[in-house]
Design a protein around this nucleic acid. Structure first.
Lengths: 144, 144
DNA sequence: ACATATTAGTTGCTTTTGTAACTAACAAGG
DNA sequence: CCTTGTTAGTTACAAAAGCAACTAATATGT
């Protein structure tokens, strides 16, 4: 805002961020939801495994700042849908390595490219400079 | 991102937006939650009434793009906590005008100034130009 | 070795949200 | 008037998220 006494809901960053996040999330949701019956956390798990390779649930929690119960439930659901499989780590049986099945990998490839495309349609609205600033600010706020 | 083949979760706008939104929401939550036992939607309702004057639930829904069940429940909760009261509109008894009680007004004043302060602490991290770009982009994405 | 603490992951219970069906009040056409 | 449609708001039920307590495996200090 420019004047302090005109401070408005639309000047309030948490509100703005939420609205923007909700709009994009809703839009992109249709992909993983309609096509693969996935939930947001499930899509994130698939993204992590597809993009960075096999890892444990805890690693996914750390990288995505997601609570472990959410990931645990996502893993269970993805396993039931045969998108991922788990393997207990012999050296430390508390850990289990998660990996994509062939159909999980196919879903990932599809969703990965859909994500890229969707990102571009949002990005296209802005200049290169605007984009850089936007992303840098968001990353800073998110603390990543 | 700069290279397409480096597309990463942190380059994906919906993800970035969500992370940033969650961080700020969590931080600001502590105010209305701890001090007044409010939920996010309740705080939004209070903000609307305090900032723009009395209005109906539907007007709040429209202005904040919030679903009516959420507002309905927030109104019920706020009424129980004696922060707002309703008055059926005589000319059209389907409508009810919502207005803040004295304690609701006091909570609003407190939270309004907390919001402004909080916004500034986030804003302070960025230059004036960056801020303008950030807010303009978010508003555009949010479609407001 | 053994009690104690940590870590990975799950489960149960509560709170919050989403969706759809519902009531009540009004509007409009015949 | 009286059917049909619309609008404001609520409620009931289902999906999802948050939180805390739990199990199982391992690590640590004595």
């Amino acid at each position: 805002m420019s004047k302090k006494d005109a401070f408005d809901l639309k000047d309030f960053l948490p509100y703005l961020l939420n609205q923007a996040a909700e709009v994009t999330s809703r839009e992109f949701q249709t992909y993983y939801r309609r096509r693969y019956g996935m939930l947001r956390t499930e899509w994130r798990v698939v993204f992590h495994l597809g993009r960075y390779g096999d890892m444990t649930a805890t690693e996914i929690c750390d990288r995505s700042m997601t609570h472990k119960t959410k990931v645990s439930r996502a893993v269970k659901a993805l396993e039931k849908k045969r998108f991922i499989k788990r393997t207990v780590v012999e050296e430390d049986k508390r850990n289990e390595t998660l990996s994509l099945t062939p159909s999980g990998r196919a879903a990932f490839r599809d969703l990965f490219s859909a994500a890229r495309t969707y990102d571009e349609t949002v990005t296209r609205q802005f200049s290169a400079d605007e984009n850089d600033v936007l992303r840098a600010c968001l990353a800073k706020i998110a603390g990543t």
